[in-house]
């Protein structure tokens, strides 16, 4: 006989959970991490503004949000009697914003009720932020280079200006030598699958690199690397399908080394109306609920490419933290009741 888990008891197998807010906030580690995170944001803003980007404040609620999120549940809210969503990501508004500016970025909050099994991956939060970037007319290669330059700039800036924080966190900045000195590694999804299978890991060729597989690839690398060309069926409708190689997406992830895993996801975007509607169906979506977005797409939006860097994950990697929740002042671990 099986028993229903009481929702209040939360996940069973998390190694270490955040302490009460008063303890977490006064913990020297938290303070150092938040200061380091400030350095990340400052460096990101400086870099992007210096490259002609406009910072947008994007909506937190809307009638529809990014559906392309593996296994997680969206949060519904009652918006004057209409069912609205908290943003799981800002993707729809990123595309829309290109009607105003060619290059935009945003530090966007995201809420995803992740599956409970993610409580002990050390890298999932139900509430987090992304450094979101979108560029009209950019190709995958161009946006990928921008992502690499941005990551390198941030790491250079924080290692230069936050030595004290690294010191107090016990993080040796020598870990970033390869990142700062060499270009990022590169493998396609198919190559990553083959590599994992060679390592004895049963990775599906049709799906995302699973969390264990990602950790395995990450652990054996000394610098960040790209994984490109994910198969259709592993990502949301907005990742552009290759016109030359149907079934393959023009997208990428940046995977951090040392086992920290994915930092960033990006792609060229679908922007043509009929393709977007067909891709919505392929991802099981009901186009009817995307009314405002499809109307806009029908009238024409720029083709674009962009990415989002998970701010807390990036901070975790920089600070060398055990868990991503340590990179948040008010962490929400999936399934764990927290203020």
């Amino acid at each position: 006989m099986l028993h229903i888990t009481d929702p209040a008891t939360g996940p069973a197998a998390t190694d270490r959970l955040p302490e009460a807010p008063a303890r977490h906030l006064t913990d020297p580690t938290t303070r150092a991490v938040v200061r380091l995170q400030n350095g990340v944001l400052t460096a990101a803003r400086d870099f992007l503004r210096g490259h002609g980007f406009t910072e947008m404040l994007l909506p937190m609620i809307g009638p529809v949000t990014d559906p392309g999120v593996r296994g997680s549940k969206q949060v519904d809210i009652d918006y004057y009697g209409h069912r609205y969503k908290l943003m799981t990501s800002a993707i729809l508004y990123k595309q829309a914003s290109l009607l105003a500016f060619d290059k935009i970025f945003s530090i966007a909050p995201c809420v995803r009720l992740e599956p409970l099994e993610t409580a002990n991956t050390s890298r999932h939060l139900a509430e987090f932020h992304q450094i979101d970037v979108e560029v009209a007319g950019a190709s995958r290669e161009e946006i990928l280079r921008l992502g690499e330059d941005l990551v390198r700039h941030i790491v250079r800036e924080v290692t230069e200006h936050h030595a004290e924080e690294f010191e107090s966190l016990g993080r040796d900045t020598g870990a970033f030598a390869e990142l700062l000195g060499q270009s990022f590694g590169h493998r396609t999804h198919a190559e990553a699958v083959a590599e994992l299978r060679d390592m004895g890991h049963d990775q599906s060729a049709d799906a995302e690199i699973d969390w264990q597989g990602e950790a395995m690839l990450s652990a054996k690398s000394g610098r960040p690397f790209f994984v490109t060309d994910y198969p259709k069926g592993s990502r949301g409708f907005y990742d552009r399908e290759s016109r030359d190689e149907p079934g393959t997406l023009r997208n990428f992830d940046i995977i951090a080394p040392e086992g920290y895993g994915e930092l960033c996801s990006g792609s060229e975007r679908e922007f043509e109306y009929a393709r977007i509607v067909a891709r919505m169906r392929e991802t099981g979506e009901n186009p009817a609920k995307y009314g405002w977005y499809l109307q806009m797409v029908r009238e024409g939006i720029p083709d674009s490419a962009g990415f989002g860097i998970g701010l807390e994950r990036f901070t975790r990697y920089l600070a060398g933290l055990d868990s991503v929740w340590q990179a948040s002042a008010y962490p929400k671990v999936p399934g764990v009741i927290a203020p």
Binding site: G71, D206, K232, S234, R281
Partner: peptide, 14 residues
């Protein structure tokens, strides 16, 4: 559409 919906189910709910 059917093929991709099934793949997405496997991807999202492994």
């Amino acid at each position: 559409i059917l093929r991709q919906q099934i793949r997405l189910m496997r991807n999202n709910f492994p």
